[in-house]
Design a protein around this nucleic acid. Structure first.
Lengths: 135, 135
DNA sequence: CAGTATCCTGGACGATACTG
DNA sequence: CAGTATCGTCCAGGATACTG
């Protein structure tokens, strides 16, 4: 049925499952987009772009379960369902934003490092003879 | 060969690969632990607890590639390799800590929500008859 | 000690078809 | 419209064995 997210070393005990949930492929994105206000299923789907129906459903279910958002069904035909961040969900936006900003700021540095690393990997330096000691 | 991390919707273009890298199973953990100071491979391995040798190697390689840490080889026998955060790696600790703290703070709220959700799911409310309108 | 090299498996995720 | 059901794929990641 639903993908389980049941791993993570849990050195950090109970915090890990939380990070695992919001760390999956779509959760963060959903949360950030819902920050713009409540939204219907397909609107959300379009805005994300690239989610399968199935995964969006699972993601939303999971986030609802943990209390990040509410799911409101209007019993009309055809049905209409609104998703909206709870205060909990809202409060998550700040730290996530912070991470996003960090990524933005260090983008160039990182892409650079990556290039230099890959470059250096190609002209392998021949290893010097090892010494006969060990601490 | 190495696991690829090649997905993510890339609505966010170049930021996504970065988040993907540090969002994998071990990277964050490695970064946070290396915050305590430089460390050798097996020391790191023990502290994390539960990583396979293979994945720790890959994780470290990836983090080195992006410039989060340096890898220093002492050409002795047996070899000794130290891993140490770069300033870039150090600077990542703050926003990650923030997220971790957030998780800590809202732990109870979340576990609660989860319980209530699962509870409510068991005694399914019978659906009321739908109306004949659509917006 | 700090890796590589292989092999293998579970589960995250997508595509498609069907429905109230 | 907003799902659920079913099926298939891919690959992250673990286990194990070998090596400089």
């Amino acid at each position: 049925m639903e993908p389980s997210h049941a791993h993570v070393p849990s050195q950090c005990g109970r915090v890990a499952p939380i990070l695992a949930r919001i760390g999956d492929k779509w959760s963060i994105l959903v949360i950030m987009i819902l920050g713009d206000g409540p939204m219907r299923f397909n609107e959300l789907r379009r805005r994300i772009g690239g989610v399968s129906q199935r995964m969006l459903t699972f993601t939303l279910r999971g986030l609802e379960r943990d209390g990040y958002l509410t799911r409101t069904v209007f019993p009309t035909v055809p049905p209409r369902v609104d998703y909206e961040l709870t205060p909990l969900g809202q409060s998550l936006r700040a730290p996530v934003q912070a991470l996003g900003n960090w990524a933005q700021q260090h983008l160039v540095t990182i892409e650079d490092a990556r290039l230099r690393f890959d470059e250096a990997a190609k002209r392998e330096p021949p290893a010097p003879p090892p010494l006969r000691f060990s601490p």
